Simulated assay, not measured.
Amino acid sequence: MSKYSFNQISLKQYIFIIFETQVGIGILSLPRDLAKTAGTDGWISIVLGWLLSVLLSLVIIKIMEKNPEYTLFELLSKYFGKWVGKSLSVLWILYAAYAASVVMFSTIHIVKVWIAPDIWDFILMILFIIPIYMMTKQGIRVIGLFAELVFLISLWMPFLLLFLLKNIEWLYLLPIAKEGLFPILSTVKSTLLSFLGFELAFILYPFLKDKKSASKGIVIANSLSMITFLMVTVISFVKFSPEEIKDYAYPTLNLLKLIRLPFLERLEITFLSFYLFILFMTIIPYIYTAVLGASQLSGKQDHRNTLRILMCLWIFLSFFFHPSFSQVSQMGKSWGMAGLYFAAVFPLLLWMYGWLFHLARKEQKQ
């Protein structure tokens, strides 16, 4: 019997966790970021970024297939020994905690700008921490159930884009590759960062009930993210002019301001209120990764004490750290650079090392 048999997630939950982690914060500013570097050809970079994320995801699954009962932190100790393994685990814990912190402070910033500019940061922090703590402390099984719920209550959101399919200018997309291939290829790195979240397969795989479908599941999750990114980006490109879109910090929310419904004003506020659940589902898997790693490193079964310490640290920081848009953007960029190493470089190196590790073990047995 698997040691995680009482804390497993279904394939559907596995897909939703990865998908919701990916679309979270990045989709709000993605059209602007792409327009700045690749113009209206940025949608091509999304497809290329999807291809890279799928390939890297499959590398992660290949690594975990050889060690199905190990989390990443246990695997690192197995491959590299106690001290090197623990050092690498600490880096992963810091990365996951920083990713969660970036999304948390970015969420507070967005809510203050768009909904409640006069509210104190620490009040928002406390309000947001309550559901995040309640979900994370219960473990991966409850997080999986919450991911299903979030998917169901957000199904109506893509249909809002249908209201924008009038008075649009498709000619903004033409000619394709008007600036050449270099801007498109140079933007692929940015789009790959938008797909961050697939690296959590390192953590989710041991808890997955149907491990044989892990590859299929992660391809579906990445593909759902690509479709979502493409829909939002293309509609932004044909609704706003190529120069106008660069003036908006969060073009996705600016799109919603253009929708007029007879029974509802300020649709972007309603949207953002529901979208908070998706943002929470970006924070929760990363924070769970951090506290799970810390508990496994210290040899404890219960991760709740570590979680409480981190929550208290967030509340303490919110009293004096009030990031501006430029600071939030800089934090996002630094997370992206770290993500490039942890989600792209690290899996490739670990896959090659693991291949040599298992090869050496086979030779020793012979």
Rank of each mutant, 00 (worst) to 15 (best):
Q8R: 08
Q8H: 04
I9L: 03
L11R: 10
K12W: 09
F19H: 15
E20Q: 15
D33H: 11
A35M: 14
A38K: 10
I46L: 14
S57E: 05
L58Q: 15
E69F: 04
E74L: 12
L76H: 12
L76V: 02
G85T: 07
K86L: 04
S87V: 09
A96P: 01
V103K: 09
T107Q: 08
I115H: 04
A116L: 15
D118F: 15
D118L: 13
I119R: 10
D121N: 12
M125C: 00
I126E: 02
Y133T: 00
M135W: 00
I140D: 03
F151W: 07
F151T: 11
P158C: 08
F159C: 02
L164T: 08
W170E: 09
K178C: 01
E179N: 15
E179G: 02
G180K: 08
L185E: 01
T187M: 07
T187E: 06
K189W: 12
F198E: 04
I203H: 00
L204E: 07
P206Y: 02
L208G: 00
S213A: 14
I218W: 06
V219A: 08
I220Y: 11
I220V: 13
A221T: 02
N222T: 02
F229G: 06
V238K: 06
L253Y: 11
L253C: 02
L253T: 05
R266E: 14
L267M: 08
F271V: 14
S273R: 12
F274I: 13
L276K: 05
I283F: 03
I283P: 01
I284C: 01
I287N: 00
G293Y: 06
S295T: 13
Q296E: 14
L297H: 12
Q301M: 09
T306I: 13
R308P: 01
M311F: 10
L313W: 13
F316T: 08
F316W: 07
F316A: 12
L317C: 11
H322L: 02
H322M: 03
Q330T: 00
Q330F: 10
M331Y: 03
W335C: 09
L350F: 11
Y353T: 11
L356T: 07
L356D: 09
H358L: 11
